[in-house]
Amino acid sequence: MHFPADSSTSPRGQTSETPLAAPHAVPGGTILDALGSSLRGLSEHEATTRLEQYGPNALTPPQKEGPLRRLLRQFLQPLIYILLTSVLITALLEEWVDAGVILGVVLVNALIGFMQEAKALQAIEALAREMTTTATVLRDGEKSRIPATDLVPGDIVLLHSGDRVPADLRLLRSRDLQIDESALTGESIPVEKGNDTVEADTVLADRHNMAYSTTLVTHGTGMGVVTATGDHTELGRISEMIS
């Protein structure tokens, strides 16, 4: 089975090959073939080439805006235009109480939107800080520790208790592996992991053969192949939605 590459523009505006659509539904050996990898990992030359193609394994920082601009942007909505028009009309009719009430609704709505956006930005920054700084990989069959930003699809990553998962991985081997995925799924109990395939429409919380970026290994060991990095990870998609 071959997974076609899609050289499209990512949500952040970067052009790169998109990740595999449903790696949890495909046998591990097939995933390795599709990614041009093996249990020995990539060669250093191939990893360097892919890093140039995919870019670093990091989330793109959201665009920064000043507080005043973010507050004013809360008024740029069709419903707000209608309400402000209503304020003007009721004021012209000298219905001061009604005008005041409607204006109050507009201001409260803008304030709530401003506060929610501020919390969303803080959440994005917190997610970015959760990304691990180093990863243990196999390259040319040799184990080494590299910056997590240098990971590329096809890299073989080794996981141990206490590690944060450095990218989205399709697990190939596991031994008593449990991962805390509460940051992504809200599930407070660590999930037992394996490497058997699951259906393509399986929800994220039930994809027991996947390990997702920033989740925490609480027990056991595992080995997986990187299927997505940076903005293409599940974490990146969440960051995009709340930014």
Rank of each mutant, 00 (worst) to 15 (best):
G36R: 12
D150N: 15
A183D: 05
A211G: 03
L111I: 15
I124W: 02
E181K: 00
E187N: 12
Q63I: 01
L235C: 01
T30C: 03
S174A: 06
L177H: 11
L68H: 03
A211I: 04
L68F: 09
P147N: 13
L158S: 08
Q178A: 15
V137D: 06
S37E: 10
Y81K: 08
M115E: 06
I242K: 02
A167M: 04
V217R: 01
Q63R: 00
D180H: 00
E199L: 11
D168M: 12
T15Q: 14
I189C: 06
R129E: 15
T134M: 11
L83C: 06
M210L: 13
K143E: 14
R164Y: 02
L204W: 10
S43I: 05
P61L: 01
V108S: 07
L84Q: 01
M1L: 09
A200W: 09
T136R: 08
E234G: 15
A34W: 15
K143H: 09
R145F: 06
L235Q: 03
L158Q: 07
E125F: 07
Q63E: 01
L72I: 13
T15K: 14
L93K: 12
T214Y: 11
T134Y: 05
H2F: 11
N57S: 05
R129S: 15
S8Q: 12
Q122M: 09
I124T: 02
T132L: 13
E65M: 04
I156V: 06
R237T: 03
P190N: 05
G113E: 12
I80H: 00
E95Q: 15
T197F: 12
Q74N: 02
T9C: 07
L79A: 00
N57V: 07
L92M: 09
Q63C: 03
V137K: 06
A120T: 07
A123G: 09
H24G: 11
H232C: 03
H208Q: 12
M241C: 07
Q53R: 14
I31R: 09
L169C: 04
T221S: 04
L151D: 11
